[in-house]
């Protein structure tokens, strides 16, 4: 295994040549906020929270999608990055109806945690207040589009781990919606195996197990990584 040595926030870090900056940082105990990244799934670089500054590049690069390189100098916490990350979370809160007080995931929500961690105390933008559907046609699960952040983790978990690709995204811009099969109600989906991986993958309260109270909404998204690793390391 070849190794690369780089510096992250001035700290010398070594990482396998194929590692991403995000992996290298985490191994070194440096936290970079993420939302669309989930261990075990492919990276799409969509949420822009993990953007970092790399000396010599005039563009910010997503840590999840950037390979380490020898001598690379990475900054993960400049004032500019912190400001942009706060704005990303602000924009998300303004986009749909994230009303924590009435959300099943209150207290177990990655979006809420991000707001807290990044110091996003209030939203300066107009709330868009769209009318979004709630689909509870499935016997065991439900999806509330009011709480969806379009991270597409459910789409990837379903496609890459379960292998059935029930979920995808239809429409574009803020009108984008996660759909099951060819935009049928979830309960009528013929591809869904009811495996529940999308529930594990969802960072907010958008996809939930039915009949579960707020206090019980804890989900272990690390199980996705466990499944993928267990599958790859069979002996």
């Amino acid at each position: 295994m070849s190794v690369r040595t780089l510096s992250i926030n001035g700290q010398q870090v070594s990482a396998p040549a194929e590692a991403t900056v995000l992996e290298a940082a985490r191994d070194a105990g440096i936290t970079i906020p993420t939302l669309c990244h989930l261990d075990g799934l492919s990276d799409v670089g969509a949420c822009r929270l993990c953007l970092v500054e790399i000396t010599g590049s005039n563009k910010l690069q997503p840590a999840c999608h950037t390979r380490v390189a020898e001598g690379m100098e990475v900054q993960t916490e400049t004032p500019r990055l912190q400001q942009y990350r706060r704005m990303v979370v602000e924009l998300l809160f303004a986009e749909r109806n994230h009303v924590c007080a009435v959300c099943v995931a209150n207290g177990h929500c990655e979006l809420q945690n991000l707001a807290r961690a990044l110091g996003m105390y209030h939203v300066r933008f107009d709330y868009l207040s769209p009318t979004c559907a709630v689909d509870i046609t499935h016997s065991r699960f439900g999806i509330d589009h009011n709480r969806c952040v379009l991270c597409a983790r459910c789409v990837r978990a379903c496609d890459e781990v379960e292998g059935v690709h029930t979920w995808d995204i239809a429409g574009r811009g803020v009108a984008s919606r996660v759909i099951s099969d060819l935009d049928q109600p979830w309960g009528e989906s013929t591809s869904c195996t009811a495996c529940g991986k999308c529930v594990l993958a969802c960072p907010t309260g958008a996809i939930f197990r039915r009949g579960v109270t707020v206090g019980e909404m804890e989900r272990d998204s690390a199980k996705i990584r466990f499944i993928v690793e267990a599958r790859n390391q069979r002996w």
């Binding site: 809160f93 109806n97 009303v99 209030h122 709330y127």
Partner: peptide, 18 residues
């Protein structure tokens, strides 16, 4: 001081916007 979620975000009161 914006005191509580309704003052800070609109919260439940703002659900009528839908």
């Amino acid at each position: 001081i914006a005191f509580g979620d309704c003052a800070v975000t609109g919260n439940v009161t703002a659900l009528r916007n839908l």
